[in-house]
Amino acid sequence: MNQQANRTIVVVGATSEVGAEVSVRLTRAGHKVRGIARSLGVALDDQSALDVAFSGADSAYVMIPFDVTAPDLHRFEDEVGARLVSSIGKAGLRRIVLLSGLNAHLRMGTSLGAALMEERLAALGLEELVYLRAAFFMENFIKGMGFLEQAASGVFASPFRGDLPMPLIAAKDIGERAAALLSAQHFPARRVVELHGGGSYTLEQATTILGRAIGKDVAYHEAPFAEARAGMVANGISASFADALGETAASFNRGERWALEAPTAENATPTSFEAWARAIARSHAAA
């Protein structure tokens, strides 16, 4: 993509794995980046601070963060989305890249917040808008699913079927693609851009790969949802988030089609799960 320099770009969730990668790449490319994160002094529940952050900008990377402790996950997502769209509308931004989910078209579970944000942004009539629909994050194994903690017992459990292929993507690859879109001189005409990641793996395969990388023999176990839900709630996750994750797992387990496209070179990204697992093992050993 040909690059157009000197944009002022807002990055929502600038301290997340994807947002940090977007910010670094845009800054290196010569753009002015305004990061939105509570630790940066701009919280997503502060409408006036959001208005200031978006004012005078021409582009933005946008995402709806998960709050795993929210008593009502979808109400939280709806409120965040409304505030962001209000600020974007007031600022008159021209270009938006929204991080969405590969299964957002199903409008359910953990992808519902992104799906509703797609609709909110579409209603603004923006000149340039892309829904970057990304596969299941590889990072979820560590941050959300507790692989390292579970691996100590020799069994990794989740409510997802272990025998169905799941497309997996590294966060930094999403950040790279989002930054390229925001920097591009010629923006794509199509609104939905799918990212299938570095390949599809069953959770049984992924468990073996990640276990071997950290030097452990780990087996995969598909946990009944009631068992998985109780474990999540015991670990501080809200019942609302657990139930949304349960909807997503049930959809996957039924074999519902998460992607609209077949895998291609265009929707693939460079980091394989094997390479990501080796990097995790190195950082785990160093820690």
Rank of each mutant, 00 (worst) to 15 (best):
194 E>R: 14
267 N>D: 02
268 A>E: 03
277 A>W: 08
214 I>Y: 08
238 S>D: 10
141 F>N: 10
153 S>A: 13
147 F>R: 13
73 L>P: 08
19 G>W: 07
129 L>Q: 09
237 I>F: 14
37 A>R: 06
139 E>M: 03
268 A>V: 01
40 L>Q: 09
172 K>T: 14
45 D>T: 15
45 D>I: 10
168 L>T: 02
24 V>K: 15
130 V>E: 04
278 R>M: 12
15 T>V: 12
263 P>Q: 00
200 S>G: 11
46 D>F: 07
42 V>R: 02
101 G>K: 04
65 P>W: 11
191 R>W: 00
102 L>R: 00
194 E>W: 10
237 I>D: 00
70 A>Q: 05
105 H>Y: 01
101 G>R: 05
263 P>S: 01
243 D>W: 07
102 L>M: 04
29 A>F: 00
217 D>W: 00
273 F>I: 05
98 L>Y: 06
177 R>K: 15
283 S>M: 07
269 T>H: 00
68 V>M: 13
167 P>E: 00
219 A>V: 12
257 R>G: 10
143 K>F: 12
152 A>H: 08
269 T>P: 00
111 S>Q: 13
151 A>T: 09
37 A>M: 09
286 A>C: 01
13 G>M: 12
9 I>P: 01
109 G>C: 05
98 L>V: 08
132 L>G: 03
39 S>K: 11
47 Q>D: 13
66 F>H: 12
274 E>S: 04
82 A>T: 15
282 R>I: 02
146 G>R: 14
40 L>R: 10
183 S>C: 14
197 G>W: 00
152 A>F: 04
111 S>R: 07
6 N>K: 14
41 G>D: 02
113 G>T: 05
107 R>M: 13
123 A>E: 15
15 T>E: 14
285 A>P: 01
99 L>C: 01
50 L>I: 07
222 E>Q: 15
137 F>C: 01
281 A>C: 12
165 P>G: 04
157 A>V: 04
201 Y>I: 01
275 A>K: 12
13 G>L: 09
234 A>C: 03
268 A>M: 02
133 R>A: 01
245 L>T: 08
34 R>N: 11
180 A>D: 14
280 I>D: 01
178 A>K: 07
41 G>M: 03
32 K>H: 15
147 F>L: 11
252 F>A: 10
209 I>R: 02
70 A>S: 10
151 A>F: 06
194 E>F: 11
196 H>M: 09
106 L>S: 11
147 F>I: 10
64 I>M: 09
138 M>S: 11
129 L>K: 08
260 L>P: 03
162 G>I: 08
111 S>C: 05
